[in-house]
Structures are given as C-alpha cells and as structure tokens.
C-alpha cells in the first residue's frame, strides 16, 4: 500500500509542484483519520481525490486550509508544504488565517452568506481590508465573470444570494473564492448537491479556472474525476493507495484495490 508514495510518474518536466503532503497524518481525537500521506499537487493543474466515503479525502482537503483548526481535538502530523516559498502550512507559527487567504475553498453544499450577491463576493475582499467602493466593484465584477455568473446576476447584484438557483449559488461561492486571487482553490464535492445541468456548468468552469489557479477537488463521482482532472489520488481508510496521471489511474491502475473501486466492484 505504501508503494503509492513512491510512484514515480513520467511527468512533464515543466510541471511545477505547488504544494505537497509529506508524511501527513491527521487525528480526530484518538482516531487516526489519515496515515502517512505523501502526495504532490501540481501547479495550475486539477488534482482529484477519490475513494469510498469515510476514506479521508475530505479530511485531507480540509487540512490544506486548516479548517480543522476550527474544532477542538484535531491534530495534524507531518507537513503540507506550499511552494515556491516552501512554507509548511501546518507549522505552529503559521497563521491559519494567512493560509486561508492563500488557499480558498468551495463547499459541498452552496453556502452563500445571507447577504446580497455583491456582498457575498465582496466579503473575501473586505476581510482583506479592501473597502474602497470602486475597487470592490471592479474586483467583484471580475470574479463574477470568472465564475461565469456575471451575465446572469449583473442586474440583481442587490438580491439575496440565497435567492439564486442552486447552480448559481455554487458559482457565487466560486466567485467568492476567486475574488481574493487565491493560489489554490479547494473544492469539496462541489456538485453533489446540484442537478446534472448545473453540474456540467460547474465542471466546465473548474476546467477553465485551472489556467490561472491550482485546483484540488474531492469528488465521489468517478466520471467527474476522469472528465476534469489531470491527476487523481485514490484513497482508502485514511491511506493514499494510488496516485498518478488521471488517464493512467483510470485505464491501467497499478493497484488491484484501485481497479476494483474504479470498475465499481466496491465503493
């Protein structure tokens, strides 16, 4: 199993590593949820995390922006290093708030704030101390365009975020995550609460986004992982079983367990 960590893929030399887990462990109280994860995340690529429920993929994702710090009793071990500055995101002296400013996140269920469409996006700028009206307007518009939502909401910027449709709400949350120019965006099963049409538009958007930003996405939908991601990591019971270029993982997985999962024999 641990051979997953030593995979040496025939990688494009131009690929840069944006972040990597080094012997990363995670505990919820006494329960060890992640065991010895070693995995790179390539710059401006889409990496997907797949595996049966409870395998730890969301736990791993939420470690990247230290969401676990919000709850008592959680412990990190090992390192998640961010490049190019080589910062260990988990280090005690690193402020989780700074981490979250660099790595933003989109959640499973759309969670717009009970504010207007405009203020939802502006929020991530306001917490960075940007309160200048024209700058806010420019950047909110830019992010809404980036999230392919501008044309639909430009006339209802003062409407409550919750009044948008589910797919629009999720794109609003993506715009919110984009607004602050993050280096990585984490997606936690972003389409699991959406219908197929909204799902397709989000997937398209994610693929477009990866030109500008590194993307790490958790999905329970293997077709989705195959469709959109460049790299895929298969996890099981808190361990990273297999990691590689998506096509390789899906077409000829090295690990029997991965193959069983992908072909639908269990999961």
């Amino acid at each position: 199993m641990s051979n997953a960590t030593t995979i040496n893929m025939d990688a494009d030399p131009k690929l840069a590593i944006k972040a990597e887990c080094r012997n990363f462990n995670f505990h919820y109280g006494d329960f060890q949820a992640l065991k010895g994860i070693n995995m790179p995340v390539y710059d401006k690529k889409i990496t997907s995390l797949i595996g049966p429920s409870g395998c730890g993929k969301s736990t791993l994702l939420r470690s990247f922006n230290r969401m676990h710090d919000l709850y008592p009793g959680n412990r990190y071990g090992g390192e998640i290093v961010m490049h190019p500055d080589n910062t260990n995101l988990l280090a005690k002296e690193v402020d989780p708030i700074e981490v979250r400013m660099r790595i933003s996140m989109v959640f499973q269920k759309p969670n717009p704030f009970p504010k207007s469409v405009f203020e939802n996006v502006a929020y991530s700028l306001r917490v960075r101390g940007i309160n200048n009206k024209s700058e806010l307007e420019d950047r909110v518009q830019h992010s809404l365009k980036g999230a392919a939502l501008w044309d639909e909401v430009k006339n209802r910027l003062n409407d409550l975020g919750a009044n948008l449709s589910g797919g629009q709400q999720q794109r609003l949350c993506i715009a919110r995550a984009l607004a602050s120019d993050p280096e990585i965006i984490l997606f936690d099963e972003p389409t699991s609460a959406l219908d197929p049409i909204a799902t397709a538009s989000i997937e398209e958007l994610v693929v477009e986004l990866c030109e500008k930003v590194t993307i790490l996405i958790v999905t329970h939908n293997m077709q989705q992982a195959a469709r959109i991601s460049d790299f895929t990591a298969y996890m099981y019971l808190g361990e990273l079983i297999e990691y590689g270029v998506t096509d390789q993982v899906f077409i000829k997985p090295k690990n029997k367990q991965t193959e069983d999962y992908i072909t639908g024999r269990f999961g």
């Binding site: 400013m101 917490v127 101390g129 280096e183």
Partner: peptide
C-alpha cells in the same frame, strides 16, 4: 496572486484583525 501582493501588508492586516 500572492507574489504580486505585499505579504507584509497581509500579515499586518491579519495581526490587526487578531488584535
């Protein structure tokens, strides 16, 4: 991108918010 932003400024901002 962070590179284009002033990391010091962000840190100062966070420090202020945390105060």
């Amino acid at each position: 991108m962070l590179e284009s932003q002033d990391l010091q400024a962000i840190r100062a901002l966070i420090a202020k918010a945390k105060r």
